[in-house]
Amino acid sequence: MNRINKKLQEDKKLLSIYFTAGYPNVDDTVSIIQNLEKSGVDMIEIGLPFSDPLADGPTIQTSSTQALKNGMTTELLFEQLKGIRQSVSIPLIIMGYFNPMLQYGVEDFCKKCQKVGIDGLIIPDLPVDVYNDYYKTTFEKHDLINVFLITPQTSDERVRYIDSVSDGFIYMVSSASTTGAKVGFGNEQTKYFERIANMNLNNAQIVGFGISNNDTFTQATKYAKGAIIGSAFVKYVTNNNLKSIPDFVDDILKSK
């Protein structure tokens, strides 16, 4: 069974952390992953940097631009991840835009993912239909889960459709926004969380966007199986030593 599905069976709320590979320094990838696992994080999203990240706000844009300047490439990321499964056992997901994967070759990309021990992919600009028609069999052949997104604007009908083609979890974008744009949740989010929770979907939901501290983590996981922190963590590693990553994670999980 894929590590993601195994993790989702655990009787706890899950914390997933996103970071941009190659940032702040090109060789930080392995150290960040190891520190996150050591801190008690349940799942990690490794951001493959892209020159034009449409769905991301300034924090992740800046980290991506810097990572590319630092020399990060798809090939280098796979190189860095080569021995990762000797020291890390939590699920690892690569999150990135479709064009770099297309240039690498989708089949080769999936093959490499499986080889280094990646469990899933999040590709915001790969539409569900295109995935189903052209890439699903390739992903499945390499035991990769493709995670789809829903937003407050996604209709019930489309949520059902996305649920029907998902395996693992659904990435629930908390508000109509780019990453890091909004902090905290209001009435609209609560209504949306309740709406989705009441749909009794087949797949678990993990909430992302707008989560930055214990308070927002607790609110999101009241309705969902877990939550994802991205921009807040990228900001944290910008300003702090990687060795202090456990402090960041402790703050998120403190009163759980």
Binding site: L54, A55, F98, P124, D125, L126, P127, V130, F148, L149, I150, T151, Q153, T154, S155, R158, V173, A176, S177, T178
Partner: peptide
């Protein structure tokens, strides 16, 4: 239309 779900609607 290779767009993120946020743009779908």
């Amino acid at each position: 239309a290779f767009i993120p779900e946020m743009l779908y609607p």
